[in-house]
């Protein structure tokens, strides 16, 4: 899948780390970690894609290859037509990067000075810079923070400062590695709103990794799931349900009975959990709940009920758990 029309394209990309581990005082063991193990995908201009997977799946490693930080061990990458590892400096003008875990700003400088230095480094014309900065300051609420040295900013403040810094040179692509990590609800909402606007208004392509599925639900139409360095799923968020449970996606009927009973028996459903008078019945997602409800109501003392759709977190948890 070599797709050079795409803004980002990966073809059979691999990254292998040689790790040496001390087994005992004298002996050292050499081992290979296949952090990324043959990944191919393409992202078109203007897409906003979620890149998710459990800890150690290879998300950050992929992003580091896409920015030119790491050399791939195999395969082919292109970002805006550029081979990242070979032309890292040229690529830097076209991309913005935010590492949730690490600031790209100068620790001792006030935000304003960091931004000024960025402007010169990236050769952004002053008018364009002022315009971009004003927009970021306004939407990310940075006005109060501009004179504060980065080391004095709180995590959430610093993250907003970092996001602004990544966008002052109008990059084509924005990579975000866990941009909402450690943020409170309000800050998360602010960051999400900002990213959505950025994508809609300026058409910036966004690739983001996160462990917060709400980020994905609220921002990304397309999601890629990776595990053990392999792509497990690539498609619409909605399709994840079907893929995750490999065709056996289930909904849950939650019934509240008058009193505690042994697990009830209803054809077409099975009890998966009992808690006092409340029981959970799983049934195939494609099937209607109506016959179940009437069957339960006919035979048992029903007080209340509700139907739960398979929840994306469950689906993903099951996907993660289903790995070897």
């Amino acid at each position: 899948m070599v797709d050079d029309d795409a803004l980002i394209s990966l073809d059979g990309v691999e990254k292998v780390f040689d790790v040496r581990r001390r087994v005992s005082l004298m002996r050292r063991e050499k081992r290979q970690v296949r952090a990324v193990d043959g990944i191919s995908f393409a992202v078109a201009r203007g897409e906003m894609v979620g890149y998710i997977g459990p800890n150690g799946a290879g998300k950050s490693t992929t992003i580091k290859m896409l920015t030119g930080i790491l050399n791939p061990s195999g395969g082919r990458l292109r970002v805006a037509g550029i081979d990242p590892a070979r032309e890292r400096v040229r690529l830097a003008h076209r991309i913005g990067v935010v590492f949730g875990q690490r600031t790209t700003l100068w620790w001792d400088l006030p935000l304003k000075d960091s931004y000024g230095l960025m402007r010169r480094m990236y050769r952004v014309p002053r008018a364009r810079f002022e315009e971009n900065l004003e927009r970021c300051v306004d939407r990310l609420d940075l006005a109060e923070l501009l004179d504060v040295p980065v080391r004095q900013l709180s995590l959430g403040q610093r993250m907003r400062g970092d996001i602004a810094a990544a966008l002052l040179h109008d990059p084509d692509v924005l990579y975000l590695d866990e941009p909402t990590i450690g943020l409170d609800v309000v800050s998360k909402a602010k960051v999400r709103g900002f990213l959505r606007q950025l994508n809609e208004e300026r058409g910036t392509t966004v690739l983001l990794t996160t462990h917060d599925l709400q980020d994905i639900e609220q921002l990304c139409e397309r999601v890629m799931v990776i595990d053990h360095g392999r792509l497990m799923y690539d498609g619409a968020l909605g399709g994840l349900h079907a893929a995750g449970s490999a065709g056996e996606s289930e909904r849950t009927l939650v019934v509240d009975l008058e009193r505690e009973l042994a697990p009830i028996s209803v054809p077409g459903a099975r009890v998966v959990k009992v808690e006092g008078p409340r029981q959970w019945l799983a049934f195939p997602a494609g099937q209607s709940a109506a016959p179940l409800v009437s069957a339960v109501a006919a035979e048992y003392p029903l007080v209340d009920l509700s139907v739960r759709e398979p929840d994306i977190e469950d689906v993903i948890a099951r996907m993660y758990a289903g790995r070897d």
């Binding site: 078109a44 897409e47 109008d170 208004e201 058409g203 497990m232």
Partner: peptide, 28 residues
Amino acid sequence: EATGTAGTAGTAAATAGPAETRPAREFT
């Protein structure tokens, strides 16, 4: 295995709209 909907779901999102409104990048 990775379901092959790659790109299709994606390209749909990449409507032509934003591309036009993007500012020209004359400087970098």
